[in-house]
């Protein structure tokens, strides 16, 4: 937080950090979602993105409300519960120079929206898809979501009888091209991962454990601050380097750094910790996620990335101009075309 507050000077595009702000939050004090919104602001500012070139999407829930709390100068569509992916799949075709940021919650993604989430991932629509995951329904005041762990107790719900859905594992299973997990209590990592996600050409899934301070912050809960702090097992330290910046990794010895070059030429630098982990290996990603479930780790970092996976736009051969700027006369075939059609039915 400190680092972001210090920066009040304009970025290379001439925007101040304040140009990326949204409205004041109406979420609870201490909510993990606010911290994430803050990191989105910082990431966009540091990446020198034009706010007007970002489009925000969300579904329904506390997390989905938070799209109002960053990037006020960006278009936004707060859609239906669990059905934000389809909105984005329609809208982002209109202008492929725009970047989509979708904010969802665990109920929005893993309960009502599981189908749309997985189909979005499988189509690889270029956008950032953040799940602010707290294992609980907040706006309806404290019911289990599908990511809540078995045995979790909530005031009016009793004990959760079901096994949880692992969003990162679901994403990998659906052939996601970018899957990361982070913890709202680790803002620096959240920010770097958002920057990496924004530079990814494909669906970038970020499952961020974001504790609900009101309904699910019990110390033993997998979605609490104290559990997260005690169990976080970072895969690596992540640093995002923009295309025109020089990579200067100073404090690490040779062999402890790995780089993945993204589609736009930017580089994600992984500074290895104890674990040897290769985020470009899908089989390895599945194994790691399985292991994390069994061992009760909160694995954070970039779990899987394929910077060159074909996107949904590669599957259509579209004219290079923005679809929504094409003038009417180019959209309506001429009379001769209709004459031919009529003739073909005779």
């Amino acid at each position: 937080m400190e680092t972001t507050l210090k920066r009040s000077y304009p970025n290379a595009l001439g925007y101040n950090r304040s140009d990326y702000l949204g409205l004041p939050t109406t979420l609870c004090k201490g909510c993990g979602h606010n911290s994430i919104a803050n990191m989105i602001v910082s990431a966009c500012y540091e990446l020198e993105l034009q706010p007007e070139k970002i489009v925000k999407f969300s579904g329904i829930g506390c997390s989905s409300k938070s799209t109002a709390y960053f990037l006020d100068r960006s278009f936004a569509f707060n859609g239906l519960h669990g059905r934000m992916p389809s909105l984005a799949e329609g809208a982002l075709f209109a202008d492929r120079t725009l970047k989509g940021i979708g904010i969802s919650g665990d109920g929005d993604t893993a309960n009502i929206g599981l189908s749309q989430f997985k189909h979005l991932v499988r189509r690889n629509l270029p956008m950032v898809y953040i799940v602010e995951n707290n294992g609980v329904y907040g706006l309806t005041k404290g019911q289990f979501s599908a990511t809540a762990e078995k045995g979790l107790k909530l005031k009016r719900q009793g004990e959760n009888p079901y096994l949880p859905v692992d969003i990162a594992l679901e994403a990998v299973a659906a052939n996601a091209s970018f899957v990361a997990r982070s913890f709202a209590g680790d803002p620096k990592q959240v920010k770097e991962l958002i920057k990496a996600a924004l530079s990814h050409d494909g669906t970038a899934v970020l499952d961020i454990i974001s504790p609900c301070v009101t309904f699910n912050n019990q110390d033993y809960s997998l979605h609490s601050y104290s559990w997260g702090k005690g169990h976080e097992a970072p895969l690596h330290e992540v640093e995002f380097v923009m295309p025109r910046e020089e990579i200067t990794v100073e404090d690490f010895e040779n062999g402890t750094v790995r780089e993945v070059t993204m589609h736009d030429g930017s580089v994600i630098v992984f500074k290895k910790l104890e674990r040897q982990y290769d985020p470009t290996n899908r089989t390895e990603a599945v194994r790691l996620l399985e292991q994390a479930i069994r061992r009760n780790w909160l694995i954070t970092g970039l779990i899987y990335v394929d910077p060159n996976a074909p996107t949904i736009f590669d599957m259509y051969s579209m004219s290079s101009e923005s679809l929504n700027r094409i003038p009417a006369e180019k959209l309506r075939p001429d009379r001769k075309a209709l004459d031919m059609i009529n003739l073909s039915f005779q």
Binding site: P85, S86, A88, E89, G90
Partner: peptide, 10 residues
């Protein structure tokens, strides 16, 4: 949903 997104986007 897709169509609403597309219609919204012009």
């Amino acid at each position: 949903g897709m169509v609403v997104g597309a219609g919204w986007a012009g």
